[in-house]
Each structure stands twice: as C-alpha cells, then as structure tokens.
C-alpha cells in the first residue's frame, strides 16, 4: 500500500515537473513568435548581432600582430573563449531574459501578475521575456567553433559548457537581482557586477594576476562559466569538470533560495497589469 502511494506521489511530481517545463517552453516559443511578427526587424537583429560580435575579431587580430600569445592563449583559444562566451550569453538571454531585469520588477512592484498564475513563480518570471538578438549570439558562438576549432569532441563539450555557462550567468543575475528585495540600490550594483561578468569573459584569464584571479572565480564567477571550461576544452580533466558542475548547482541553489526568501518581503505596488 505504502509503495503504491509513494509511486503515485512520484508520478505526480514527474507530471508536475513535465507540465512546468512544457509551459516554460511554450512561453519561450510564444516570445520568439512575437519577436518574429516583424520579420525584417527579427532578421536584422540576429544578423547584426553576429556582425557586432565579429567586430571583436579585428581587435584580436591586431593584438596578435603585436604579440604571439596573450595570457597563454593563441588566437584559436581566444576565439574558442569568445564562442563560448557568446553562446552562453545568447542561451541565457534567449530563455531567461527577464532575470536580467528582475530588479526592475521587484522595485516597481510588478511581480503580482506572476504570483497569481497557477505555475512556478520563478520559472514564470524567468521565461516571460526573450531577447531575439540573443539568437545571433548563440549562432555566432557555434559558427566560430566550426571555423576555428571544430571536432566532434569539441562540439559536445561546447554544448555542455554553453548550458553550464548560461546557467551560471542566469543564476548569478538571479542572485544579484533578488537582493533588490532587501536593498533599493542593489539593482545598480547587481547590474554592474553582471555586466562585469560578461566583460571579463571575453579576455584571457592569463592577463589577470593575484587577487583578481581569485575574484574572477568566486565573486564574479567568469572563471567557472568561461575560463575553466575553455581550459577543459583544451586539456580535459574529469575532476575540473565536476568542479564546474558542482559550482553551477551550488550557485543555482543559492540563487533560488535567495529569490524565495526575498519574495516573502515583496510588496505589491497595486499596478493593474495582465499577462496573456
């Protein structure tokens, strides 16, 4: 009898998770479809974002004309880093763009419409917006990988680290955004730290020394989202892979915990708005 109850509970949990994920996927799908309403704008956004990223190629070509290796990296490795950085950023902004403006929702008391919906509040908030130009980032990363360092092994590792990188970036933005439940000015500090994480991710870690390196692995986790994965793609090590995965789960758990703790302090601004 007890086994039957346990089984039915487990099936219920699986069904709930499945339903939640389905709703999330549908939400992202409709966000993209909304972005595609104007085809010209949609395509221009994607193509120009790819060109925008490609502009940095010029920067690195010039720098490598001056010196053969920069921070222990050759052009191929810098491009690999750029590819991973662009793809992680793209995936995070494609699926969870709203996390990056979470502070605004909290400070302006705009979470009400998410709280009344019969699905997970956090997932509802996270998937409620999509940045269409991020498709360009995602594609750019894959293109760079194919041009500079394609192999089946690299592709598999690249896809894995794109997911871990996007998760770490999203979790970090969620954690920083959630501090707005406690502090009004937290949005400014948080936004600066999240954008710093992105800025640091496009330069080799070899150019940074001492305490800065420590900062980049723990306080601004670019090390865990980009630097270590790039090292792993060059020289694979199972132990380091588990460090990346462990850090990702730890950060994600801390971010989710902080969000729900903060949500208890949330006060509505009584704004009338609806999500359709």
């Amino acid at each position: 009898m007890i086994t039957k109850i346990n089984m039915s509970k487990r099936i219920n949990t699986i069904t709930t998770v499945k339903n939640q994920l389905q709703v999330c996927m549908l939400s992202v799908k409709y966000n993209i479809m909304r972005g595609m309403l104007n085809r010209v704008t949609f395509l221009t956004n994607i193509i120009f974002m790819m060109l925008n990223n490609a502009a940095f190629l010029i920067q690195w070509i010039i720098l490598f004309r001056l010196k053969e290796d920069i921070g222990g990296y050759t052009l191929r490795e810098v491009m690999l880093q750029w590819a991973l950085s662009a793809s992680s950023y793209g995936l995070a902004h494609l699926l969870f763009a709203r996390v990056f403006s979470l502070s605004e929702l909290i400070i302006n008391g705009k979470l009400d419409s998410y709280l009344v919906q019969p699905k997970n509040v956090l997932l509802g908030v996270m998937t409620s917006a999509t940045s269409t130009s991020s498709i360009g980032d995602l594609l750019y990363g894959l293109c760079i990988l194919c041009i500079f360092c394609f192999s089946f092994r690299n592709l598999l590792l690249f896809l894995l680290f794109t997911v871990t990188g996007a998760t770490i970036l999203t979790a970090y933005a969620l954690l920083m955004g959630s501090f707005s439940f406690w502090f009004v000015r937290a949005d400014m500090v948080g936004n600066n730290l999240v954008s710093s994480m992105v800025n640091f991710s496009t330069y080799p870690d070899g150019i940074f020394k001492g305490a800065v390196k420590f900062l980049l692995y723990l306080i601004i986790p670019t090390g865990m989202s980009i630097y270590l994965p790039v090292h792993l793609m060059v020289n694979f090590d199972v132990g380091q892979l588990f460090i990346v995965l462990g850090f990702m789960f730890l950060l994600l758990t801390a971010a989710i915990f902080t969000f729900y703790r903060g949500l208890r302090r949330y006060s509505s601004s009584n704004l009338m708005n609806a999500r359709t």
């Binding site: 400014m188 730290l193 710093s196 640091f200």
Partner: peptide, 8 residues
C-alpha cells in the same frame, strides 16, 4: 554608480 562598469 555607473562608474563601476567604467572602472571594470
């Protein structure tokens, strides 16, 4: 506050 990004 925006100076943080500049500094970084």
């Amino acid at each position: 506050m925006g100076f943080i990004t500049y500094f970084m």
